[in-house]
Design a protein around this nucleic acid. Structure first.
Length: 796
DNA sequence: TTTAGTACACTTTTT
DNA sequence: GTGTACTAAA
């Protein structure tokens, strides 16, 4: 590890008082935090357990933990600093002390993840007879979550704002029941974990004092992403009082005590989740005498990449001026590769080709594909798989999201906490055991009358023979299974034993085995994997409770494998990571920036910050791509290039697109240069990177290319229509001039002028000669179709 | 009660 | 394109 620069050093050695480190991307932020922890322990003699470092993701926490462990002198490792996410910290606090809240929760509470929350809201909406398209469970949940984070109570919800709308009134009703149900189920949702922990620290002085006394040194990473409640929590621990009690700064307060927050406003990308970068802006006012250290020296990226990042972020108004400086030795670096694809498939093909290229050159160079939405991953996965390139995907469906895994976890949750209605509803009839819709309806209406948990309702129903004999015996069978699992828990059987029992005693595995389908096979494998995970957790000394908590709190980003050579993930997940090669894909208006962010300036700036985060992940080479058309919801849509492309200086980019492309390359003097450069790169391989590559020639010369060409000639349909990005194929096939019978000006990719619609780009040609059908995209008018002989077009 | 088949709604981003 | 929710038939 290289030495610390003076500013980093200062941050490491400031171990008393409040400290705000404004750390630009790649400025060695994690290094500063880890060194600071090690410094506290080794130089200042602080016992490790008095140190608390909070991060946002398990991934970041894990990374920090292992770095500290690696750096720390093993003799001093008598205890460990607590390095944890906000959520895990809260679970820890609550598991220890919920009962002193006297709010009816017990320490074996369950955590409802998003899926559980949606199920609960759906159930409530059904009960309240709220069933129309204008309010989905997800929307209601979103409204409830943000209300909870603002501290709004259900009773106050309908009255907020100017007037009571019907929608708000309905949400308020759902909200009220939702909170009641959670409490009855002895369950916390993600928001509750924070809210209740804060409430606990606020209301119970002994508990607050315990944590305040224990954690003399508190550090918070990614501080720009904290929300009000998280800040409250940190404040309660670090200061020992609630935030609104005013600034506490009695003399000597900071003796052997510190609060160090690290963040970067330009990387604030979670405001949709309630994070508020005004907190970081207000920090120095909340804590008089705060020392501020700015880290602007970037150790990660080339000058070109940093120039691009700086230029993009300068377009934002809401920020503090900051410029990243590259280190000398990394130099200017390669230009940013720009590629305009015809469609999303072409984009994926380009990226895959490039990756193959880089891998041939330098096998262990890591690359990452960054997209805005998880849905974009599919095409890249397919393209990579076709090419036989191994990849690691982060996000989307995580292991713990799989139905079978959740089912087994639900059995375990139920064994721990029979009041967990959602878990119960989930598994009461899976595998099918004869407890069908009718029975469940009866049970639920009974439950409503009784006002008890589903579990108790079932016990009563069985005792009173309230349902038919078949259903009764089925219900008895079910409760017997759960009780059996509960007994194992009480007997403190080994974790792996209990998990195994949850897969076997419940009949889950048997039922899957009987299915004898490919899907069932896959599910069985997942269940096996879950058991393996339990065995491992047991070896780490985890309890069943830990194991279940883990399943609820792991995030998708935790699947990130640092050594994977190719990684696919969202730009959000990429925060905090770095890669030699980065592809930013799908830079199209409506996708990135996302359509949901176009309405307000603030949201747009957040998208821009996301762009900044994405760019600054790159160490050596950055590629930015977009497609001219893309399927959205299965519908083909013509796209418009992202405004962010316009904000990048052209001189930093090189055009790798095959034909004329958007981005003003066509209009600017350097166009020819760029285009020639691109062409030269393909055929002559002037750059060393291309030398050993057969990508440009051979691949496109292949039989497939020729076949592709003939397919197009026969006009067999849109999906076989090669894009202009594929034109090298036809060119290599020596058939360029014959490619389109309707004349060269109507080739795909040609720019044409229409008297009414102005200048457009030919997207697609079908058929040949004067009967050819042309699909042309006109900015501002969208996609238009013409028959060649009926339209007058000029070459533009 | 279960299952198979079809309509449908859906996509930001995550602890 | 895809996963889920509802409906009709076994």
């Amino acid at each position: 590890m290289m030495n610390l620069n003076p500013k980093q050093q200062e941050a490491v050695e400031t171990i008393e008082g409040s400290l705000l480190v404004l750390a630009g991307a790649g400025s060695g932020k994690t290094r500063v935090i880890t060194h600071r922890i090690v410094h506290l322990i080794e130089q200042a003699g602080v016992p490790p357990w008095k140190i608390l470092a909070v991060t946002f993701t398990n991934k970041a926490a894990g990374e920090m933990k292992s770095r500290v462990e690696a750096t720390l002198d093993s003799e001093l490792r008598t205890s460990s600093p607590l390095i944890s996410t906000f959520h895990s910290l809260c679970v820890r606090i609550l598991r220890r002390n919920v009962e002193s809240l006297n709010a009816g929760y017990t320490r074996n509470f369950t955590i409802y993840d998003q899926d559980d929350q949606v199920r609960l809201v759906r159930q409530i909406m059904k009960e309240l007879d709220i069933d129309d398209k204008s309010l989905t469970a997800r929307q209601a949940l979103g409204a409830i979550s943000s209300a909870k984070n603002r501290g709004t109570l259900p009773a106050a919800y309908a009255n907020q704002g100017e007037h009571v709308t019907e929608r708000n009134e309905r949400i308020a009703r759902i909200f009220k029941l939702y909170e009641e149900r959670l409490k009855k189920a002895n369950a916390f949702d993600f928001d509750d974990l924070l809210i209740r922990a804060v409430e606990l620290l606020r209301r119970v002085p002994e508990v607050r004092q315990y944590y305040h006394d224990r954690f003399r040194h508190v550090m918070i990473d990614e501080f720009q992403d904290t929300n009000g409640i998280q800040y409250d929590l940190a404040h309660l621990i670090a200061v020992g009082s609630a935030r609104k009690d005013g600034a506490v700064n009695p003399a000597g307060f900071w003796h052997e005590r510190s609060l160090c927050v690290v963040g970067d406003i330009d990387q604030s990308i979670y405001s949709f989740r309630g994070s508020d970068f005004n907190i970081i802006l207000g920090f120095q006012h909340d804590f008089a005498g705060t020392k501020i250290i700015k880290l602007e020296q970037n150790y990660r990226s080339t000058q070109t990449i940093l120039d691009a990042a700086n230029k993009i972020i300068e377009c934002n108004r809401q920020r503090l001026p900051k410029t990243l400086y590259a280190t000398e030795e990394l130099g200017q670096g390669e230009k940013i590769g720009y590629y305009q694809a015809y469609d999303a498939e072409g984009e994926a093909r380009f990226v895959t080709d490039r990756i193959a290229d880089h891998q041939r050159q330098t096998p262990d160079l890591r690359s990452v594909v960054l997209y805005r939405t998880n849905a974009q991953s599919r095409l890249f996965e397919e393209a990579l798989r076709r090419r036989g390139i191994a990849y690691n995907i982060v996000g989307g469906f995580s292991f713990y999201d799989r139905a079978e895994v959740k089912d087994i976890i639900a059995y375990l949750k139920l064994a721990m906490n029979p009041r967990d209605d959602i878990a119960m509803a989930r598994v009461i009839n899976s595998p099918p055991r004869g407890i069908g819709k009718t029975t469940i309806d009866v049970l639920q209406s009974k439950q409503r009358d009784l006002g008890v948990s589903l579990w108790e309702t079932v016990e009563l129903a069985v005792a009173n023979r309230a349902v038919g004999p078949r259903a009764t015996s089925a219900l008895e069978g079910f409760t017997h299974i759960i009780k059996g699992l509960g007994d194992r828990v009480v007997e403190a059987q080994p974790l792996s034993e209990i998990v195994r029992a949850a897969t076997l005693d419940t009949g889950y595995v048997r039922s899957l085995e009987e299915e004898k389908t490919v899907e069932a096979e896959g599910r069985l494998l997942n269940i096996e994997e879950l058991v393996t995970a339990a065995v491992e957790a047991e070896e780490h000394g985890e309890s069943l409770q830990d194991f279940i908590d883990h399943a609820a709190l792991v995030s998708d980003t935790d699947q990130y494998k640092a050594d994977a050579r190719v990684t696919l993930m969202t730009m959000h997940s990429a925060k905090g990571l770095e890669f030699p090669i980065v592809f930013i894909v799908g830079t199209e208006e409506g996708l990135f920036p996302h359509s949901r962010a176009l309405a307000s300036e603030e949201d747009l700036e957040e998208e821009r910050r996301l762009c900044y985060v994405a760019i600054t992940r790159a160490q050596q080479q950055l590629y930015i791509t977009h497609a001219m058309q893309r399927r959205i919801f299965g519908e083909e849509d013509v796209t418009e290039p992202s405004r962010f492309l316009n904000e990048l200086p052209l001189e930093l980019m090189q055009n790798l697109s095959s034909g004329p492309s958007w981005l003003g390359f066509a209009e600017r003097p350097e166009t020819r240069h760029n285009r020639e450069a691109a062409a030269a790169m393909r055929s002559e391989s002037p750059r060393p990177v291309k030398k050993t590559s057969n990508y440009a020639g051979k691949t496109y010369n292949s039989v497939e290319g020729v076949r592709e060409f003939f397919k197009r000639r026969s006009g067999s349909g849109a999906e076989t229509q090669p894009s202009r990005t594929e034109r090298p194929k036809s060119r290599e096939a020596g058939a360029d001039s014959a490619a389109s019978g309707s004349g060269s000006q109507f080739r795909v990719g040609a720019r044409v002028k229409h008297e009414k619609y102005g200048t457009g780009v030919v997207l697609r040609t079908e058929g040949a000669g004067e009967d050819a059908k042309l699909t042309i995209s006109f900015p501002g008018y969208g996609q238009k179709k013409f028959v060649a002989k009926f339209v007058s077009l000029e070459k533009a």
